[in-house]
Design a protein around this nucleic acid. Structure first.
Lengths: 192, 192
DNA sequence: GTCTATAGGAAGATAGAC
DNA sequence: GTCTATCTTCCTATAGAC
């Protein structure tokens, strides 16, 4: 996993990102991060105060990347329905799960305000952004007047996060795609 | 956590259930299970082959309880819509998460067929049961003819599982309830 | 900045006495 | 059936040399 021509602290962050995604916070050891980064103990503790500090840096990085990705996808659609659908049907490797959402299931992450913050912030932004898109759709007359933008946005994000759970439980991508199809169909029926 | 008047193997299973729910498989040690059960090393390794063996027993137990609970809730409704809604709005402590679904985020569980089996089976049954309920609703003319029972059922289960993720990320029950309200509203619009 | 040495404790299990 | 001892490896650092 050693990547030439990159600073050690960068390599440590990227290694931590990958391992946190694969194994979660509790399941990831500093030693494993170091080995993957091709760095020694000393390097890691020189650049970071410890495991939590490095994990926060890695999670912030992942959160930023996820947000940029989501922003780009939703910008593609024209109407509110298109934007929401674009977020839902974006191609995902469901078996890997969500690198940000997965952290919410980790006991040590949820127990620490520092570790939980990037996760909280990401979903706050995401549901808020989607809610704004849906509210505009209601205001413009594209969507049924009674539609609640906040509840609907939260539901959309929940379908994606829950889809990951079902896919991993089944050991197959299929439940994820099925859940997304179900949500898209129900949303389509909300056109005014 | 010692419960008087119960066999040691029972106490070990119940302790494992509680700890797996709280901390996941990777985050739960045999020692912690033993301490909570008021049992020694020897007892645990006498009744179970090791951590995976005990975890499977605990997960099977939790899966059975969850299924019984879901069965009971869904039996309450009369129409298909009432049954599906009953499943969604059942009272849950969202911050604790789902004791079965949480396991799907654990790397060691997903990597082992033995450990993953109870999780897979539970969601298989749950989505299947909900799909049958919805299919009946379509057949009876209660629900719109074009509604896909499988996709819709999977979406409903995903909303609940994803709701847990959002609630834990936010440190609040609210996102869970919001996602459920969003799903219930969209489902209600599917009446024929 | 990076390396090696060292450390106290936990993880996961085995052995054998009682 | 349960208990204590023992074992090896890993976890998460800290110390200090280079």
């Amino acid at each position: 996993m050693y990547t030439a021509g990159m600073e050690t602290s960068e390599r440590l962050i990227e290694s931590a990102q990958a391992l946190l995604w694969e194994r979660g916070y509790v399941g990831t050891s500093p030693k494993a991060i170091q080995e993957r980064a091709g760095a020694g103990q000393g390097s890691m503790y020189h650049h970071f105060r410890g495991k939590p500090d490095l994990a926060v840096a890695a999670m912030r990085r992942s959160a930023g990347q996820l947000r940029a990705q989501a922003e780009e996808q939703m910008a593609r659609g024209g109407t509110a329905l298109e934007k929401a659908t674009a977020y839902l049907v974006r191609e995902r490797d469901a078996l890997r799960g969500c690198r940000v959402g997965r952290m919410a299931m980790d006991p040590d992450v949820v127990a620490s305000a520092q570790l939980r913050e990037p996760v909280r912030e990401t979903f706050d932004w995401l549901t808020g952004h989607l809610a704004a898109v849906l509210a505009e759709g209601v205001a413009s007359g594209e969507l049924r007047p009674g539609l609640d933008p906040d509840d609907t946005a939260t539901m959309i994000v929940a379908v994606v996060q829950g889809g990951y759970v079902l896919a991993r439980a089944a050991g197959s991508q299929e439940p994820f795609d099925s859940a997304v199809r179900g949500a898209v169909a129900l949303l389509a029926a909300q056109a005014a």
